[in-house]
Design a protein around this nucleic acid. Structure first.
Lengths: 204, 204
DNA sequence: TAGACCTTGGGTAATTTCACCTAGGTGTTA
DNA sequence: TAACACCTAGGTGAAATTACCCAAGGTCTA
């Protein structure tokens, strides 16, 4: 349910990496620090996944802006938040145009960055959800009859015990069906399942 | 969350009361048995509340049909399921017309009655909900700013811990706000809250 | 200023959910 | 027949929710 957040921090200044990493940690966000864009790209090639990428703009080697372009050309979906100490309007415009999620000037409040990161992740997930919505009918129709029964009662707000007595099966079995439903539909919690189920109901 | 169900059983045949009461008990449904409609009405006057009333039709004194009329004239909302051993189509039609929720001929399967009772309760609750829907905006707007924040994040599927770190308050406080929200909105569980919140979003 | 309400957060205990696992019985299909 | 999917249901352990209780401090208002 929790869905831990994991972000990448890219900055050639170690002090920045440390302080941001520490702050994010206090916010239950895992971080991986990289001194250069190249280092980060190497990690990517090793199948590492990040929910968001926070990168400095001015760095030796590949710049943050170039990194954004590179990632976009690779079709990496993770949102990228750029931070910089020497930004100007043009640079900011360019960054957003090529697809950066945000562009923040140093010095900034850590909470400001956090909010930006969260917004970016949320937005990208909503994009994902839009993609998924087309498969909604397919997903719901892939449920077995039993799973559908359980799903409907769960969405109606019944506990596993109540569903069990309603369907005359053990609460444990309900639990199992429920787990399957969550996985098949791709919902991370009941709230999401309810939302998707309502969407599906209205669609079809 | 559980919302225990409590129904009234009215039949002049003690054996019927006993067996139905026993069966309902196995289904986590509490029952109160009455030998005559009058007895039941007396209980009603003592502020007893029932989610559903199951009554025989042919009884000494007031008949089941008369009971339905009586209750309707008193504006009692609880659904009434009639059961009878000597029914005919006309009687059934009349029963439904005056507002009985269902009309079942003996002998019947206990599970058949159970399903009928549950459907009736669900329907009557939906009627209630329709009534409540008009108050939906009022309810949501009665939330304080903090409660609304918590509500929105909860509906989005975040755990109390996540909401806490997002709002920089302790999970415990989130819990308290959440409880208030549930009470104010009148939702019995998250699923219901999500549904109401979506309804509200679409309405306004 | 006293009362009402909101926000904050602590405690305790019961219940529920979640994420794993194993495993038998059934029915379908390659 | 063997593989596969499904339903059933048990176990364990961690995490979360729910329902209560309590109290302190702030703000606003009659």
């Amino acid at each position: 349910m929790a869905k831990s957040i994991h972000i990448a921090l890219i900055d050639d200044d170690e002090a920045v990496l440390d302080s941001l990493g520490l702050y994010m940690h206090t916010q239950q966000i895992a971080t991986a620090g990289f001194s250069t864009a190249q280092e980060f790209l190497t990690a990517l090639q090793q199948h590492k996944q990040f929910d968001c990428i926070v990168s400095d703009v001015r760095m030796p080697g590949m710049s943050g802006l170039e990194l954004v372009r590179e990632l976009k050309s690779r079709n990496i979906g993770a949102p990228i938040v750029l931070i910089t100490g020497h930004g100007d309007v043009d640079m900011a415009v360019a960054a957003i145009k090529v697809g950066a999620a945000d562009f923040i000037e140093k010095p900034f409040d850590e909470s400001r960055l956090l909010a930006s990161v969260r917004d970016a992740i949320e937005e990208s997930q909503q994009r994902e959800n839009f993609g998924e919505q087309k498969d909604l009918p397919a997903k719901f129709e892939s449920l077995t009859a039993r799973q559908r029964q359980v799903m409907e009662l769960a969405v109606a707000g019944l506990s596993n015990k109540e569903i069990g007595s309603r369907l005359d099966i053990s609460p444990k079995t309900v639990e199992n069906h429920r787990a399957w439903v969550m996985e098949r539909i791709g919902a991370r919690n009941i709230a999401e399942l309810v939302r998707l189920a309502m969407k599906y109901d209205r669609q079809s």
